[in-house]
Design a protein around this nucleic acid. Structure first.
Lengths: 338, 338
DNA sequence: CTGTTAGCGCTTTCAA
DNA sequence: TTGAAAGCGCTAACAG
């Protein structure tokens, strides 16, 4: 019923080897022959069986994308970008969502990507050494998104510097007591931002001659609700902070909500700055640090595909790319905009 | 380097056929033999090549999931749920994101799923007849999510009734002038909700003896920003509505924002109700209609897998499942809660 | 219960 | 520039 390469060969009056060559655009096929093959294939509505091709060639034309969540803005953006880049290159996307701690353990234990991908993309996961090893054992190029490691392709932002720029900005507005709403750095599902953004926060305080205060660092778990609860705790402190830095816009939304609920004004009573610059943030007039998510995803995907295409077993000279972030100052952190 | 079925056979002292049977859990394998095979496979860290298996068996153990967007709550939830259900069943997920009109056209033209999936899941797309045909030509079971069509497996909610329940609720609160913030029913990337939810809105008005007013129906494009702009237009009407029904929570968020911006109170001056019950909505104290997204996704995925497993070429007797929705009344639509 | 063998539908030498 | 033929690593009869 569905045409196979033999049907095409018969119809075009050539061998199956020639059909294969012609359809894949290989050189050394006479133009006239190629035309006949193309026509025959079109007539029969033929597409090659990917599995037969993969078995014969050893190439899978498939990339595995591993994410810890799909339901967060950053990761949804990554999935969307990677999917379209792969599709454009004729690659399939195999999506692996870790979900929870158990799912993560199972994933690295079973390694369901074995024998089915030409390359792997890992989005913003803090990986342990054993997990890096498991990845390495795949003997396939691996691209890291949002983190960096020697010996791997990667695209990321400088989370430390970006966070620091946010807090520097608050300091420049005269704030001396600045709260942090962050992620759990001990979370087994840990992804990379919480560690680095907290470091950037602490760096900025130190540089401003401000002492760190554990009370000022509250967990918001990267959710709106968590951000709101963290803000509630911060606003309840005896010596209330006058500014809050949230490690994600979503947590900042929760903070904005809580501040309003408490009858306080933004930014007069409490200034707020987030991280990401999701589309919603402009609407919320939220100051934030913009990170180029699609750019990072596209960058590492493109380089991974190049590596795969070249069948290179060596990394390029500059495997680690760091993309710039941008401080976006809006009404939540300054009264009169510059 | 990586073990093949022959290596396992040799190590276990059996034929490759026996290895194949033992590892797949087929009957008629002696327990002792099975054990030896399992041990040998484990020792060699063997996994079968999926491509060889697929080529030989004709089964792909892969399901294609087609979504119009990944970056919206509903679809992210769907992807996440489907992915884990498939993984659990040992299936791979091939994700297809249509993205835009061009991507959609290309998709149905090229049909990149051909020869690579055992079944297809379509999420909330309004499909044209030609597109249904293209799907049918795959000769694979198709599950619809969020819509229904004769001859297809489906899981959905009753969007008309659900929307109507929301508007009925507003009517019951005494509202007589109720605005609609909806999606574009003429959008070529149309997904199903806009049509049905608008119908439910109109039904409710009619049932209440209220006349439809085109001015009261504004497009919010299913985004927060679009919702805000639609609300701005509605609040600017000479005869301002006292209540708004948004076809999604996200548009409702935009409306809430605009109402506040206009210095009006919710719900005293303008009541608001959304649709979906995203997690954020509870935090926003937004009344809404809860729809069970994960349940719908799980339901249709499970039934699709059954259909695939049974190699059934007939649909079950009740292919179309409709899941219940629930009116969730919060502070945005009533002053004192019941 | 187990082994033998013929494919599955391609890609890739190797010859011509 | 083209064709013949040998696999790729499995599954699925079929025999025993």
């Amino acid at each position: 019923m569905v045409a196979s390469i033999e049907d095409v060969a018969r119809r075009a009056g050539v061998s199956i080897a020639t059909v294969s060559r012609a359809l894949r655009g290989l050189p050394d096929v006479a133009a006239a022959t190629r035309d006949r093959v193309m026509t025959a294939a079109a007539d029969l509505n033929y597409v090659a069986s990917p599995f037969a091709a993969r078995l014969a060639s050893g190439r899978t034309t498939t990339v595995g994308l591993v994410v810890p969540f799909v339901n967060r803005w950053f990761f949804a953006e990554v999935i969307s970008t990677v999917e379209s880049a792969l599709r454009r290159a004729g690659f399939d996307l195999l999506l692996y969502n870790l979900g929870d701690e158990e799912g993560r353990a199972r994933f690295f234990d079973v390694m369901p990507m074995r024998k089915r991908v030409d390359g792997v993309l890992i989005a913003s996961l803090v990986l342990e050494d054993t997990e890096f090893e498991a990845l390495t054992e795949l003997s396939r190029p691996v691209g890291l998104l949002g983190l960096e490691r020697h010996g791997f392709l990667s695209a990321r932002i400088d989370d430390v510097a970006a966070a620091r720029s946010a807090v520097d900005h608050l300091v420049a507005q005269g704030h001396r007591r600045i709260g942090l709403i962050g992620g759990d750095t001990d979370d087994p599902m840990a992804f990379t931002p919480p560690l680095h953004r907290r470091d950037g926060y602490r760096d900025a305080l130190r540089a401003a001659g401000l002492s760190a205060d554990p009370e000022l660092e509250q967990l918001g778990y990267f959710t709106v609700e968590g951000g709101q609860e963290a803000a509630r705790r911060l606003l309840g402190l005896a010596d209330r902070p006058t500014a809050l830095f949230a490690e994600s816009d979503e947590m900042a939304y929760g903070a904005l909500r809580e501040i309003r609920r408490a009858g306080l004004r933004v930014p007069e009573d409490v200034a707020v700055i987030g991280f990401d610059d999701q589309p919603l943030s402009e609407l919320m007039d939220l100051s934030t640090v913009r990170q180029p998510v699609a750019d990072q995803a596209l960058d590492v995907t493109t380089r991974l595909l190049t590596l795969i295409a070249d069948a290179a077993d060596e990394l390029p000279r500059d495997p680690a790319v760091v993309l710039p972030t941008e401080l976006v100052v809006r009404g939540s952190s300054v009264t009169s905009r510059p």
